[in-house]
Amino acid sequence: MGSLEDEMCRRNMVEEYTEMNQLVQNGTMHIFKTGGHPAIMTNAELSARVITEYINS
Rank of each mutant, 00 (worst) to 15 (best):
P38C: 07
T18K: 05
R49F: 12
E19F: 04
N21V: 13
S57V: 15
Q22S: 10
E7G: 14
M20K: 06
M20I: 14
L23Q: 03
I31Q: 01
A39H: 00
E5M: 13
E53H: 05
Q22F: 12
F32Q: 00
P38E: 06
I55W: 06
A39Y: 01
T28S: 12
E45K: 07
G36Q: 09
T52A: 06
A39P: 00
V50G: 04
G36V: 09
G36R: 11
E16N: 07
E15R: 10
M29P: 04
G36W: 07
E15P: 05
C9H: 06
T34V: 15
N26K: 13
C9F: 15
T42L: 11
N43V: 00
I40L: 07
P38V: 02
L4D: 07
Y17M: 09
L46D: 07
N26P: 07
N56G: 06
S47L: 08
V24M: 02
G2E: 01
V50K: 11
A48M: 03
H37G: 05
G2F: 09
H37M: 06
K33G: 11
M8H: 13
N43G: 03
N21W: 01
E19G: 05
Q25S: 14
E19T: 08
H30E: 10
I51R: 00
M8I: 10
I51N: 00
